[in-house]
Design a protein around this nucleic acid. Structure first.
Lengths: 178, 178
DNA sequence: TCTTGTTATGCAAAGAGTTTCATATTAACC
DNA sequence: GGTTAATATGAAACTCTTTGCATAACAAGA
């Protein structure tokens, strides 16, 4: 049930199409949620059917038309009610760590390569979050003020990636000594 | 496809029943994977049908009988082949951070309570990982040596929870000042 | 004109995970 | 004898997510 509220939250901040939403998921909330375009469209249809979203078709010049979704009164009420409820605990599922857990089946060389790959991925994530952070810091102070709690989630993402990178670097050094 | 390899990995380290496995998931790998008992039993049946697991019934005194599963040669080969393949990137899905992202719908008091709740959960996780770590450090050095990469995953879990706790504490202080 | 890339939307099937229900053995306690 | 709790296993229905397929408007370049 969380995807729907992620969608409502983003559309509450600013209305948009499924396509927009997909890109905003990648740009602004990838540090705590991900969803494919099929999930977006299905969820948008459902929310529209349930009367939580309005939809208006918007013709475009030089591009295909889009459907712009925005929250209805009921949509805002549903979001408001949900944010005040306790959330289910996160379920972590990290395939790479299963592999390391089965690391006695890896040679040192294989382990090194796998950790190196992860290190690069997490460095890239950290880099992208730091860029997002720069964009936020350069935006309108009134907007920053209004969405300061949203910004805190990005700061957690940054700290989490720093932790990951530091851990992977330490592990690589240890693998290199062997 | 990752659950099956998590199951194979644990049974490769030590054979056991579905019930054992459930507890071992909670005790030893909860920092990177979680699964319900229904998932265990279903996966065990599938892996047995596919010939990756052997199964022997073991009568018990004072308790219901259990089915002990262990890897077949093909099971070991499948695990060995998988650990060497690149893993799909983790998909983070953290409902609490959606709520914070929609934090403009919360009063400071509501936000404080929600963050406080998360802080307590993550402190409890940190505590339990630190206890696991103590158990590992007191175990047979030869076993520690063999599974040292598995132990590294726990150290990452500990660092990640420390990061979370520190972030939540900082956020709470900021909320208290308002 | 044809191909490639971006924008934009969607269906259908399969796979993974959750929730609810059900059963049975044994120990411990009242 | 009846209740509660831990151990032990499983089916069925449902929801959520992924994967593969499909369509179409338009721009840019070969």
């Amino acid at each position: 049930m969380s995807l729907r509220y992620a969608v409502l939250t983003l559309l509450d901040i600013e209305p948009g199409s499924g396509y927009d939403l997909k890109r905003r998921f990648e740009r602004s909330v990838s540090h705590f949620w991900s969803a494919s375009h099929q999930q977006m469209y299905r969820e948008l249809h459902k929310l529209h059917d349930e009367g939580l979203l309005d939809c208006t078709e918007q013709p475009q010049e030089g591009k295909p038309d889009k459907k712009i979704y925005s929250l209805t009164e009921r949509g805002r009420a549903a979001l408001q009610a949900w944010v005040q409820q306790p959330t289910p605990a996160q379920k972590i599922r990290e395939p790479f760590l299963i592999q390391l857990f089965a690391g006695h089946h890896l040679t040192d060389e294989q382990a090194r390569a796998a950790v190196q790959r992860q290190l690069e991925e997490h460095r890239a994530l950290l880099h992208s979050y730091l860029e997002q952070n720069e964009r936020v810091l350069q935006s309108d102070p009134a907007v920053q003020e209004r969405y300061w709690l949203a910004h805190q989630t990005l700061l957690l993402g940054i700290e989490a990636e720093k932790t990951w990178v530091a851990w992977a670097e330490r592990l690589l050094r240890r693998l290199d000594q062997q």
